[in-house]
Design a protein around this nucleic acid. Structure first.
Lengths: 193, 193
DNA sequence: AATTCCCGTTGACATTTGTCAACAACATTA
DNA sequence: TAATGTTGTTGACAAATGTCAACGGGAATT
């Protein structure tokens, strides 16, 4: 179960993890299984665990006053899940996180993360991860403000083709900030061309 | 000129910079002055410099096929400017960056940044900065996909009130992903209530 | 002082997208 | 098998936003 995480860290870090570091990681990250639709985090809670997705699919979303869900993040295998701001700042989260498929996670607490902060390989990994994440978010913001709904859908399909396989259209539509009906029509129009 | 940067780093880092570290920073960061509307980066260029804003206002934007500008980032005093992805990955940028006001920057090159990577205080600062930046971007994405134009404008006004003072409305509108006419009408309607 | 440019506003209209309701195909559950 | 829920689609209409053109005030420039 932990092997996927070890591989993942080794791929991002400059030097591979020592045996002792591997042991530390195995000790600190706790496995957790979530059933479909089971919450990992609910709004107004503090996010106590950050999770590495070993298998499955997670979604993070806000809910507006009308009850509509707005997907801010989707996570598949080898991605992370959790509300980073709430987890780091120990503040109540504005988001819900739940499992879209049955999911295996490796979770870490805020306290245990400070242990890993002494570890160079882990810091490097996190630094690179933050960087990659910032790149992705900037692209997404640019897409949100500059592309038409159709262009945005096509960009998403190019960036994360797995999303279209793993999540239904209403989730994809929500991720794009449009309704499922609009997405349905966009796909239909594009197919006609 | 470098004092603002030194103060800034000291505020974010755990331990203040040593005299020697201060000297390194003064040596590495080169001052640069930009006139109004002067480019700091143009599309398809690699972003060779990352800049700390000592005084002034910068904007980063993409330009679509119709020639419309879409503001992805605005930077005032004590913020950074530059296309992080292009700067880090040495890839051609998708963005333009220019000075909106006459601006004083302290700039660093990719090569010189690696020197600072050995410095603990600087790494800490960058790590915290990336974190804060990720929080802000996530909030912005959530606003983009979940709020009405009016709610989004009000959120922006609460998050960055200085923006409304320093940038004209068409820039703000572009940042929100709406047209200046729509923003004008929103403000007018809100005033009537 | 005259000129030019930038900014914000407004009106009329077009386009895009949302809303609501209905329905069929399909999968899941009882 | 029957019942239920999910997903994707479609139509009719409403609402939000964009487009284009015009205008005036004001700042900056000549």
């Amino acid at each position: 179960m932990h092997d996927k995480l070890i591989d993942y860290i080794n791929q991002l870090a400059v030097a591979p993890l020592s045996d002792q570091e591997v042991e530390t990681i195995k000790r600190i990250f706790e496995p957790r299984k979530l059933r479909k639709r089971q919450y990992f985090l609910q709004k107004a809670e503090v996010c106590k665990y950050y999770g590495f997705v070993v298998r499955g699919a997670m979604r993070q979303y806000s809910v507006d006053e009308k009850g509509n869900e707005h997907i801010v993040r989707l996570s598949l295998e080898n991605w992370w899940t959790g509300d980073r701001e709430s987890f780091t700042m120990l503040t109540p989260s504005a988001f819900y996180i739940d499992a879209w498929e049955e999911t295996d996670l490796l979770t870490i607490t805020h306290a245990d993360l400070t242990i890993l902060n002494g570890n160079q390989a882990f810091l490097e990994m996190r630094s690179k991860l933050d960087e990659k994440h910032a790149f992705a978010l900037q692209k997404r913001v640019n897409a949100n403000i500059s592309l038409t709904a159709e262009q945005h859908y096509e960009a998403l399909a190019a960036w994360y083709p797995e999303f279209l396989q793993r999540f239904p259209q209403h989730i994809i539509a929500s991720y794009l900030g449009i309704t499922k009906e609009t997405l349905s029509r966009i796909r239909n129009n594009a197919a006609k061309k």
